[in-house]
Write a protein that binds this DNA or RNA. Structure first.
Lengths: 196, 196
DNA sequence: GGGGTCATGTAATAGGTTACATGATTCT
DNA sequence: AGAATCATGTAACCTATTACATGACCCC
């Protein structure tokens, strides 16, 4: 995988925002916030000015005008360049077409699952399941609300997120079923050498 | 979420390994590698000595013996402490019970999906689907192989990974179906203002 | 006049990864 | 003799995030 000149995903968000029209950074931040991209793309808006500078340094965006209104601090309006457009498209293409092993914390947890006893494991999985259900419900509600105003094309990422969570729920539920019914193999051995 | 004294997941892997028996770092690395934990937990073994030092500094592990054989460099054998045991269990409990928003790069991609044209989108999704299928097949084969030697309790993380990928495949397949059949709403509008 | 928000930017810090350096042993 | 592996450790580095600093405008 090639490493990008600007690798922070916030850069992708900025490029895609500037595609609509030139803006100054603060405005970009406002737009991003209003679209709830922070959770969506795991973005820290605090890094905005740094990232904007980097994008400009590499020629992906450029200062369009740099005026001031009244005595407000000078605000620089940036616009996306041709190179920026190319970078944006190439970046999206990569993100869509090439599945990468995503770091999953839950997987790491499962990876050392055995240090818990089976009873405790059941309790914790139950806890997770409940939290997941609650979260998915909230996401679903938000999606339904957005659907009224936003075309579906801009909501696919939420549909994906919901689908993934549902899949996780189903998997956890199935595992719980095996553990509580006793059909999970090796339950007795497990109980022998538990830690926590 | 409370921040841990050692937050690197490699620390979790080290603790769980030292639970079996005391070892020196290099041996831990060998065990981890043999169990393919690097991909599993997204771990960089290069950081091992740093992490081991940190764990020791915080009292989660301690030097058990520190002898040398022949003129080999002194190797310190570490053992897990009571505090380390507690930390390990607490850490796993958190990872299992508390679902956290996992950063998904694909989701970030979908989030700027619209900058692609629908035709290009179809191609790229198709590419992803193929790659996913190939990858899942490989995982499934590896799991089947491991099942012969390793109890299922230590393979749940692989089962989870496979389930998640299958869910993603199903989702991508459904989206593709909608896009190619033309049942996806707003396809015409989309074609109007594509970028790449 | 005080608090919030508009707007920018820099410096400090944290965190992790990579590269490098060392040297003995074992295998071919 | 030379390569690979055993074994450790440190320093450099990058990257991102956080905190801080500044100052004007707007509304009550």
């Amino acid at each position: 995988m090639k490493r990008r000149k600007v690798s922070n995903l916030l850069g992708l968000a900025v490029l895609s925002t500037l595609l609509e029209r030139p803006m100054h950074p603060y405005e970009v931040a406002t737009v991003l916030r209003s679209r709830e991209k922070e959770a969506d793309m795991d973005i820290k808006i605090g890094s905005l000015y740094t990232v904007v500078n980097n994008l400009a340094r590499h020629g992906f965006i450029e200062a369009a005008e740099s005026g001031r209104e009244g005595a407000l601090p000078e605000r620089t309006v940036y616009r996306i360049t041709g190179a920026g457009r190319d970078e944006l498209v190439d970046w999206v293409r990569e993100l869509i077409s090439a599945p990468e092993p995503e770091p999953r914390r839950f997987k790491a947890g499962l990876s050392v699952f055995a240090v818990l006893g089976p009873d405790q494991a059941v309790d914790l999985l139950q806890e997770r399941l409940t939290a997941l259900e609650r979260g998915t419900e909230a996401l679903r509600a938000a999606l339904a609300e957005h659907s009224a105003f936003v075309p579906r094309l801009f909501l696919v990422e939420d549909e994906y997120e919901i689908a993934m969570r549902e899949a996780e729920q189903a998997w956890v539920r199935a595992l719980l079923q095996e553990l509580t019914s006793g059909s999970f193999p090796g339950l007795a051995d497990w109980r022998g050498w538990e830690t926590g």
